[in-house]
Each structure stands twice: as structure tokens, then as C-alpha cells.
Design a protein around this nucleic acid. Structure first.
Ligand SMILES: [Zn+2]
Ligand SMILES: [Zn+2]
Ligand SMILES: [Zn+2]
Ligand SMILES: [Zn+2]
Lengths: 144, 144
DNA sequence: ACCGTCATTGACAATGAGTATCATTCTCAT
DNA sequence: ATGAGAATGATACTCATTGTCAATGACGGT
């Protein structure tokens, strides 16, 4: 009784473009790309398509600095993300990597962690190597 | 050369109110409380005071559903948070609990995790006990 | 293939968190 | 006490995201 979920051009092209990106992309960025490559498409449609994909499990939300939500093409299996705050590239991290931590938190704090927010932001190998000596962005230890 | 950091009534009362809350509070919520208890105070002042505290290390940002940033009184030492998405209460989690995971991620993915986003959202012991048969809020497993 | 239903679309308006501005007020070193 | 300039607060503003609704299009039934 849920929803007949119709397969439209827009839903298809949004999903395809997101999958092609293989990195975190905001709704606005997707909109720009699609307008450039396929002509008019409503921004609201992008948001709705992304929301549908997140609900399906084929996409996942990640937070980006500046209060912007970005999206990543995803497999429905339960896993987590390593989001590079420099190049926006995303790596998947299996659920098992977190298992010990989640167990410890639950055992020692009685706290049931919700996986949804377990994305790890940081600097990927590639970006790290790109900044050998002089650090442009410093450690930025306690920043967002 | 940094900033002379002046001690004003506003900075003091914001810090005190945040510390008193012992849970995640948004800038808007703090503003409402302070207006109610102490008369006029600018919303922008709240934001500035909170930003200053975050920079100092005496407060930390956490994300709340609906694209809202909430703040928690904090100790400057490096640690992480368990944020209950039901009652907004926050527990501190020592850095050491994450060490093995961070090391593994770095070793296996070459990914340097930035601690700032390492807050864990979920259901605390108290809220979990308050829903025995699991009905009102359900697990909400894959949601934000 | 044709129809009719109704989910989806898209242009536009609206919301709302957060920021910029700037004249005024207040802190604090001298 | 005095002055430099940091902080305040009222306001306007930015902009990501959502709501609205008439028009469009997908698709099951025929
Ligand atoms: Zn993924
Ligand atoms: Zn990178
Ligand atoms: Zn803390
Ligand atoms: Zn709770």
C-alpha cells in the first residue's frame, strides 16, 4: 500500500548521475550538472529523487561544511562512510569495523548507537599526500 | 595578537545556561530561554558566544535532525559524544574508545579521521528503558 | 494502442537557520 | 576617569531546503 514508485526519466538520470560521481554531491551541484547536460529539470525534483533514493537505501546523506547536505550513491547493505573533506571522495567502510566500538559503547554506556550518523570525515590518502610539508589548512583539530 | 576576549554579561550567561543544560541545545532554544529569563538579548549574540566557546574548546557542536546545529557544554580535552536523539542528553566518550577504530581506518584506508564529526547519535539507556515493547519511536534504523 | 488515474514534475513562493551590517553600548588597559 | 575598539542587538540579508499546485506523464486495465 506504500507507493507505486514510478520510473521517470528524472529519477533515472538523477540516480545515474549520482552513481557516476562516486563522491559526495550536493543537490545544487547535481542540479547544475543536469541542467547543463540535459536541459531543464526542477531543483525540487532533485531533492525529491535524492530523498527517495535515501529511503530506498541506494543513496546516503553526508554532512558537508556550511550546513549543506551532500549525497553519495550507495549499496543498501549496512555500512559506513569515510568522507574526505578535501576532495569529497567517499569510501565505504564495512559494518564490522564498527562492531567492537558499538558493542563497547552499548555495554559500558547502555547507549544504542544509530548507524546513520556514523560517517567519518577527514582527509583521504590522496589529499594527505598532496600536502607534504607546508600545511595550507593546518590540523584544524577542533573545527568543522 | 589574537583577540582581547572581553568578559561580558552575555558571554557569561550564555556559557552558564549552556553548561546548566547538560544536553544539546540549539542557538534558537538558548535565545528563547535567555529572553524569557533575562530580558532582551540578540540572537546573533548567542551565535557569536557559542562560536567563541567552540573555538575555546568549552563547547562542541552536534548535528540535530532538520539541519539544525546544537551545542553542548564541554571540556577542552579531546573526547567524543553520545548524543541521544530522543532526549538530547549528551554523554562524553573518552578518546581512547575510538583509538582502535581510528588506527584501523588509518592503517587499512590511509584515511586520517578528523575527530570533529565523531559524535554518535542514538538512544540512551534511559530513553531505551522508557520504550519497553518498542512502539512510539521504533528503532528508526536508517533515518535521520 | 487508448484511457483514466494519480504519482510526479517544475516554476514559484515560502520557510527558517545562520550571517552580514552598522550605529550604539560596554570593557578594560592606561 | 578616559579612549580605543570589542561586543551588542536590531535589522536586512543569504541561501539551502520545503511547500504549493497546475500541468504532465507513467502505467495498469481495457
Ligand atoms: Zn555507501
Ligand atoms: Zn581527498
Ligand atoms: Zn564533551
Ligand atoms: Zn535519551
Amino acid at each position: 500500500m506504500a507507493s507505486p514508485r514510478r520510473l521517470t526519466k528524472q529519477q533515472t538520470v538523477v540516480a545515474a548521475t549520482l552513481a557516476l560521481a562516486s563522491r559526495a554531491v550536493s543537490a545544487q551541484e547535481l542540479h547544475e550538472r543536469l541542467v547543463a547536460k540535459r536541459g531543464r529539470i526542477g531543483l525540487a525534483t532533485i531533492y525529491r529523487a535524492l530523498e527517495a533514493q535515501v529511503a530506498e537505501g541506494t543513496a546516503s546523506r553526508v554532512e558537508r561544511t556550511g550546513h549543506v547536505t551532500a549525497y553519495v550513491a550507495c549499496v543498501p547493505e549496512h555500512h559506513h562512510h569515510l568522507v574526505c573533506t578535501s576532495c569529497q571522495r567517499v569510501e565505504d567502510l564495512s559494518e564490522v569495523a564498527f562492531a567492537p566500538l558499538i558493542r563497547a559503547v552499548r555495554r559500558r554506556h547502555g547507549f544504542q548507537v544509530d548507524h546513520a550518523a556514523l560517517d567519518l570525515y577527514g582527509i583521504c590518502q590522496t589529499c594527505h599526500d598532496a600536502h607534504p610539508a607546508g600545511r595550507p589548512g593546518a590540523p584544524s583539530s577542533h573545527r568543522r
